[in-house]
């Protein structure tokens, strides 16, 4: 049991946990941020995707201790001042979600994808980039549509260079 400190959604947090605690469980149980989900046990479904130091990662395959000192953004940190993030808004407008369980991971993945590809995203790239995210409800059709729409929307906003 050790105290793990990190920045989550812009806030400094610290909590005691076992060394074997996964980041996703640290977020869900120690910090009560239950928006990040667990959908598989083999690092494949992507329901657990968060951003660590600006890059999308699978929080089910990272120890909380490994993430100590890093800056984490979860789905709860995406909307600002009650306004949906453009990716969230695009998912709503395009019916990019049904049961909502894979959705947080999809949104975090989409934002990371758009950050890396900007307006160069096309349908084939979006589908390839969704390799690590499984949805059972939507057939991906409207997820792809949502991400392409969000990429267009966000093109107007200059993205920070990597």
């Amino acid at each position: 049991m050790a105290k793990v400190k990190m920045t989550v959604n812009g806030r400094q947090v610290g909590s005691d946990c076992e060394d074997r605690t996964l980041l996703v469980h640290f977020l869900r149980e120690n910090l009560a941020l239950t928006g990040t989900h667990v959908g598989c046990d083999t690092t494949q479904c992507g329901a657990c995707v968060v951003h660590m130091d600006g890059r999308s990662v699978k929080s089910c395959t990272i120890l909380a201790a490994q993430a100590a000192g890093s800056s984490i953004t979860t789905i709860e940190g995406m909307a600002k001042d009650g306004e949906l993030h453009p990716v969230q808004a695009a998912f709503k407008a395009n019916h990019g979600l049904q049961c909502g369980f894979c959705t947080p991971g999809m949104v975090m993945t989409a934002d990371d994808m758009i950050r890396r590809h900007g307006a160069n995203l096309d349908e084939a790239t979006v589908r390839a980039e969704l390799d690590g995210n499984i949805c059972r409800c939507t057939g991906y059709h409207n997820i792809v549509k949502s991400i392409l729409a969000a990429a267009q929307e966000m093109r107007a906003v200059p993205q920070a260079a990597e």
Partner: peptide
């Protein structure tokens, strides 16, 4: 557009 989407999109769904 769906009324329930906001909670799912912001991580506030309650499973």
């Amino acid at each position: 557009a769906r009324k329930e989407d906001k909670r799912f999109l912001t991580g506030k769904g309650r499973y």
